[in-house]
Amino acid sequence: MNDMKIQSIGFLIFDGFPMACLTSMIEPLRASNEISGQVAFSWTLYAETMDKVRSSAGVSFEPDMALGQAEKPDHLFLLSPPMAQFSNPKAGYGALRTLGRHGTILGGVSGGVFPLVRSGVMAGQVVSVHWCYEAAFRSEFPEVEASDQVIEVSQRRYTASGAAAAFDLSLRLIETRLGADVATEVACWFQHPLMRGEGVRQSIPTYRQSSTDATLPPVVAKAVAVFAANLTEPISVADVADEVGVSARQIERSFKKATGQSPSHYYRSMRMKAARQLVMYSKDSMAQIALQVGYGSTTPMVQHYKDAFGLSPQEDRRRINLYRVQDNSPVPSV
C-alpha cells in the first residue's frame, strides 16, 4: 500500500473564507498520513492570484499557487463567503470548468458553494447549503436543488455545509483511500463523532431557545416544516394545523411549551431570518426581499425587521457592506 499514488487535494480560497473549514479538512488528512505511515494525501492552497488571502478570522494565508497554474489536482474545494467573486470572472470560472472537464473532482464548503455554482459546473447536481445561507442561495439559484443534508456527494461533485461537515468529508476521503479503520482512528484522534454521511440533516437552532430543531416535539417539528415551505406565500396557523392533522389550539399549546412563543410569532421569526439572509448575502432590493418573505410591501417587513434585529434592513446592509469594505467578513462565517 506504500506505493499507492498520492491523492492531491486543492483548496481554492477567497478573501473572507471560513478558516475553520480549511483546518477541518486539512488536519484529518495530515493525521491519516501519520496513522497510515505513508503520504496518502497532499494538499495545496490556491487563490486567484499569489496575493495573501485573509480569512474570516483575520488570519492571512499565502497561496502556494495561482488557480491558473493548477496542475489538475484530484480534488479542488472552494472556500469562501457567499458574496465572493473572482476579479476576472471569465478566467476564474473558465479555469474551474476546465479542471472539471479534465477529471478534477470539484467541491464547495460552506459559502464556497456559491462561486462553485456560479461557475456553471453544478448543473443537475444537488448542493448542500448551510441553513444560514439557504434563502440567499435559493434567491440566486432557483434552478439548483438546495439540500439541508450535512454533505452531498455525487461521482464528480462534493459539497459540505460547514466546518464540522468538512471534517466528515475528509473522513470520507480517508475511508475511501485508506479504509474504515484509519478513518475511525482519525476521528478518535480529534474526538470527532463517528463520520456522518449522506442522508444526515443539518441541526438548526430553534428561535430564542437553547436547542435545535431535532429536539422539537413531532407536532411542532411538522408545523415548522410547513411554515418553512411557505415563507413566500404566508399560511395561517389554522391551515398549518389542518396539514399537520391537529387542532389550531393544540398547535398553539405545543409551540408555547416547546419554544416559548406562539406559532405566529415563531413563523414571523423564520421569515425575518430569511429576510436577513437576503439582506446579508444577496443584492436583492428591499422590495424583492419583502416579496420573498411573504410581504406585499416593504413597510411592514421593515418594521418587523426592526423589531427582530434592532435596525432596519437598509441599515443592516450598510453595516455589512462596511465590514466588507474594511476586509472583514460578515457574521456568521461557517
Rank of each mutant, 00 (worst) to 15 (best):
A164V: 13
M83A: 09
N88G: 03
V109P: 00
D181V: 13
E152A: 14
G92K: 06
L79F: 02
A187I: 08
R172V: 12
V153C: 10
E71W: 00
E71N: 12
R156M: 06
F114T: 02
T159G: 10
L173N: 11
H192R: 14
M195G: 04
E145F: 11
V109E: 01
S119F: 05
A163F: 13
T159D: 13
S128N: 05
I151V: 15
P63I: 05
S87C: 08
H102A: 05
L106V: 10
S147Q: 09
A91F: 01
L173R: 12
E185G: 07
R138D: 10
E145I: 15
A66Y: 03
V129T: 04
P81R: 00
E140H: 09
R118K: 15
S139E: 04
E143S: 13
L173A: 12
K72I: 04
E143Q: 15
S128Q: 06
R97I: 14
A95R: 08
Q125P: 05
E175W: 12
L99A: 08
T184A: 14
L194T: 15
G107M: 06
L78A: 02
M122F: 06
F86P: 05
M195H: 07
V186Q: 03
H75P: 01
F141C: 11
I151R: 07
E143V: 02
G107D: 00
L76F: 10
L106E: 08
M195C: 09
K90T: 11
T104W: 05
P63V: 05
E140D: 13
L106R: 11
T104A: 08
L67W: 02
S147C: 12
L67Q: 00
M65T: 13
G124H: 11
